[in-house]
Amino acid sequence: MVESFDVAIIGAGMAGASLAAECAPHARVLLVEAEDTPGYHTTGRSAAFWEETYGGPGVFPLTMASGRFLREGGYLSPRGALNIGQAKDRDKVEAFVETFSALGATLHLQGRAALLDRVPGLRDDWVVGAWEPECADIDVAGLHQHYLAAAKRTGTVLRVRARVDRIERDGIGWRIAWHGGEARCAMLANAAGAWADAVAVQAGAAPVGINPLRRTIVQLRTAPVPADDLPLTLGINEDFYFKPQGGRLWLSPHDEIPDVAGDAAPEELDVAIAIDRFEKVVDWKIAALERRWAGLRSFAPDRLPVYGFDAHMDGLFWFAGQGGFGIQTAPAAARLGAQLLLGLPRDDLTDGIDATVYAPDRFAE
């Protein structure tokens, strides 16, 4: 017997799980995941933080709308972020502060003394910065499990080890199939992350140009041991960031290397670049390189998320292209996605967010 659903969501990472949780109280939902466990790829490899400026002005409304939900749910731990630059970057740092302060973010311009107070051992040529006191670490696993549990509690059916190999029209709806199973659905939601364009093509739609970019992270043992209150420290030119984690340091070269959808792995060159950049920021000693990993961050051509029905394929809904900001925007994005998908009214979480800027039809020819 082939089960029937109102909505089938492909992908059970943060995007798919959160969308399922928001849709399930109003519809019968199927959540289909190719891997053995949800969140194996990008969601499970994130060094995520909630930062007001992350993702740029176009993402800012989603970030700010999500902040209250994350705080009240206990998913945020205070961290603070320090965007630092050299003398040549002063104008850039000042413009950064001005742009986001005008939007409503909390930022403070910092001089050399303030930077050194927050990041001991900072080398002499780092002289200007922007302090973001509201930045916080995100309990990614806790948030993902919250959404999976909420989805299950409201009736969502989860299928794992179910890589979709066939999508076809079935009357006015869809039939999807995977090894050992199939289902019918009225609407198909594409929350497949790095695989989003491939899923669209399977469904007979045109891709929108979502590209997976590899991001490398390494875990270092350093001397001194990073203090628990060390801020997330980022280069204003987006060429590194680091933060403490359990007495160790997590470091990234802030790389965006074009890759293919799959099980991303770090390259030795990217690891070496990360360490070289770090050594030019602080005078700390690296005692050991303990771990390294990589994840894929998937972006549409304009680097904004893609939320809404396909411009030409009835019943195909896009919920993808969330880059590295998908976790920090999950609460508002998922609520907005469910409202667009099911025709639900806006509420206090999404009121004021202009969904048209995220619509797939901006890429339609």
Rank of each mutant, 00 (worst) to 15 (best):
H312Y: 14
G308M: 00
D302V: 03
F299D: 00
M313K: 14
A311L: 13
L316I: 06
F299A: 00
H312P: 01
P305E: 09
F299G: 01
D302T: 01
I327Q: 02
G315S: 11
A320P: 02
G326H: 03
W318R: 00
A311Q: 09
L316Y: 12
Q328F: 11
D302F: 02
G323H: 08
P301H: 14
I327A: 05
F299T: 00
L316E: 05
L316M: 10
M313C: 14
G323P: 06
I327L: 11
F317I: 05
F299E: 02
D302W: 03
V306C: 13
L316F: 15
F325H: 09
L304Q: 13
Y307G: 00
Q322K: 01
L316H: 07
G315M: 13
F317K: 02
A311S: 15
P301K: 08
D314Y: 14
G321K: 02
L316R: 05
I327C: 09
V306N: 04
G321W: 09
G308L: 02
A320N: 06
Y307T: 03
A320S: 14
A311V: 10
W318H: 15
H312V: 05
P301Q: 14
G321L: 09
G315T: 12
Y307A: 00
D310Q: 04
D302Y: 08
D314K: 15
F299M: 02
I327M: 06
M313D: 07
A320I: 01
I327E: 09
Q328W: 13
P301D: 14
F319M: 08
G321I: 07
D314C: 08
A311N: 12
I327D: 08
Q328L: 13
V306K: 01
F325W: 11
P305M: 09
T329Q: 11
H312R: 08
Q328H: 08
F319D: 03
A300L: 08
Q328N: 07
F325M: 08
A320E: 00
G326A: 09
A330D: 05
F325V: 11
D314M: 12
F325T: 05
F319R: 00
L304Y: 10
G321V: 04
D314T: 15
F319H: 13
L304D: 10
M313F: 14
G321S: 09
G308H: 07
D302N: 06
F309W: 15
G308Y: 04
G323F: 12
F317W: 13
D302R: 00
G326D: 04
P301T: 12
A330P: 04
A300F: 03
D310L: 06
D314V: 10
A300W: 11
T329Y: 11
F299P: 02
D310H: 06
F299I: 02
L304A: 05
W318P: 00
G323E: 09
D302M: 01
P305W: 06
D310G: 04
D310K: 00
T329E: 15
T329G: 10
G326L: 06
A311M: 07
D314Q: 14
A320F: 05
I327P: 04
G326T: 04
F317V: 04
I327Y: 10
P301I: 12
G315V: 11
R303V: 07
G323T: 07
G315E: 09
